[in-house]
């Protein structure tokens, strides 16, 4: 019961925060500096790890499907398999999970400490809405950076699959034929689908982490609790939303 009321309260305050942040959209041009700073933080902290992880995920996908398909001659479809799974599912979900872990936690910690040390109160008395200068630039930045992260994950993952396919003895497909099947059978829809998902996940993660941070109450100990809560809620939402968005887009 408590969990349910907490969840509803969280949903309400998150939607309210979204509405507030969006109502300041026209101040975005003069917040360009903050926007760029957030783009840098989101992109810079997440890109390397997204690249490394998607390389290995692409490789493992190729290995597993090569292993499963080696007995009935399905291995020329490895390119297609890696391509589709990466772009439709794994790249967006993985990018969002890494975003929650690296960027979401940092946002929650920063805003929670601003709340606990009364900086948010100071902003409010100065009639500078936190939704305008703290939330809006982050939302705008994640909206721009999430597709970039996802496309990088797609490309690196495909590339990883191609390398493994060439050098694994029971697969041994040349990159030319790996990419040929991918080009032939995979539609741009798959990539687009993944980009839409990533955009939704990224936006939700940043919004939820901002909201959890801003609603922190109490002392320094609550900052740690806020970070944990922000990340856990983000992860749950990513996976739940993944199901529903996939269902809608299918």
């Amino acid at each position: 019961m408590k969990l349910l009321t907490d969840a509803l309260e969280g949903l309400g305050s998150t939607l309210l925060l979204l509405a507030r942040a969006l109502s300041y959209t026209r101040t975005l041009p003069r917040q360009f500096g903050r926007f760029i700073e957030q783009c840098y933080l989101i992109g810079y902290t997440t890109l390397p790890i997204v690249a490394i992880l998607s390389f290995f995920i692409g490789s493992v996908l190729a290995l597993q499907s090569g292993f499963a398909g080696k007995d009935f001659g399905a291995k020329q479809f490895i390119g297609l398999l890696v391509g589709v799974s990466m772009s439709r599912e794994l790249a967006p979900v993985m990018a969002a999970i890494l975003l929650a872990g690296r960027v979401g936690s940092a946002i929650a910690a920063e805003l929670a400490s601003m709340k606990v040390y009364q900086e948010i109160d100071a902003l409010v008395t100065m009639n500078i809405p936190p939704a305008r200068i703290l939330v809006l630039p982050r939302l705008a930045a994640v909206a721009v950076m999430m597709p970039v992260l996802t496309i990088v994950a797609d490309l690196v993952g495909w590339f990883g699959g191609a390398i493994i396919s060439k050098y694994t003895h029971f697969i041994a497909i040349e990159p030319e034929s790996y990419f040929a099947t991918m080009r032939q059978y995979m539609h741009f829809d798959s990539v687009l689908n993944g980009l839409i998902k990533a955009e939704i996940f990224g936006f939700v993660v940043v919004l939820v982490c901002c909201n959890v941070g801003l609603n922190t109450r109490g002392g320094p100990r609550e900052i740690g609790a806020a970070v944990t809560r922000a990340v856990v809620v983000s992860l749950i939402l990513i996976l739940v939303l993944d199901f529903f968005v996939t269902r809608v887009l299918a």
Binding site: E110, M114, Y117, Q118, E119, D121, A122, T125
Partner: peptide, 19 residues
């Protein structure tokens, strides 16, 4: 009210923006 009246509060602990 905060939009119509300019009020400033000097917080007991300062509440400076640490960043």
């Amino acid at each position: 009210t905060r939009e119509k009246v300019r009020m400033a509060l000097v917080f007991q602990a300062g509440a400076l923006f640490n960043s």
